[in-house]
Each structure stands twice: as structure tokens, then as C-alpha cells.
Amino acid sequence: MRLKARLTQEQGIPTASMADIAFLLIIFFMVTITFEVDKTQVVLPKTEIRFEVPKKAAYISITEAGHIRVSSGEEISVPVPGPEDVLSFAAGVVATDPSKAFVLKADATVPYRYVDRVIDALKQSKAEVIYLLSQQETIENQLPEG
């Protein structure tokens, strides 16, 4: 009598759908990616009211020590020597696009005089809208310490 060969099932992890999942992930990252034009590390103030900043907005960042960097929103930010240079930068940006939004990314602890001079430069350059970049205020932030 001839015995029937036992049917052996091949062992393996099904990987056919792996590429599909991977491509879905790629699409997600491609859609959500935003190349940050300004990577200055600052501690942003916390606010409850927050609006989405327009894409391609010009950035002005001020660090805790008062160092200023600017970006027109198209390229990586560059340092400027002082607030008076913000005026020429902003005037150039407004001349190219009068409706351009400016985003002020300033450290919460920076003395206000630095911010004041930047805002003044923006006003003089006829900038119409600026956004004060902030973090979300949470209930924990509002609780008293201790």
C-alpha cells in the first residue's frame, strides 16, 4: 500500500500587505510634514486662545537672551544683529507680499523691550497681521504651585 504524502503547510509570516501599510504610513508623513523654517529653541508663552498660523508666514524668533532670527517663510531663519534690522527685513517681505503674516516666536521670559522693538519695526514696515506663537494653556498650568 502506498501511503499518501502528508500535506505540509509552509510556515511563514504573511508579508503581502506590509508594503501597503508602509505606503499608507509614507503618505501620512508626506501629507503632515511641515519643514520648520525656524528651529530656535524657546519656551513659548501659554495661551487658551490659539489660531492656526498661516502656512509660509514669515518668522521672527527672539530667544531668552534677546537674540533675533528672521525667516521670510521660504528659507531657514538667519540671525540678525538687532531689532533695527528687523525693520529692513520686514519692509522687504511686505514689499514682496503686502498681506504676508508674521509670526513672533519669542521666549516667555524675554524682557518686553526686545518684543516691543520688533513689534514697532513691524508696525513701521506696514505689516498688517502678526501672530504671537504660543503653547496650549492647560488646567494644570493654571493651578497654583505647591
Binding site: T34, F51, V103, A127, Y131, L133, S134
Partner: peptide, 16 residues
């Protein structure tokens, strides 16, 4: 990818 902070308070400036 860097999940950048992209929200803030709008601050309309009066015209100079």
C-alpha cells in the same frame, strides 16, 4: 518630521 508649534494669538496691528 518635527511637530512644530503652529498656533498662536492673532495680533492685528493698526496701520502706521
Amino acid at each position: 518630521t518635527t511637530f512644530a508649534a503652529t498656533r498662536g494669538l492673532d495680533f492685528a496691528l493698526p496701520k502706521e
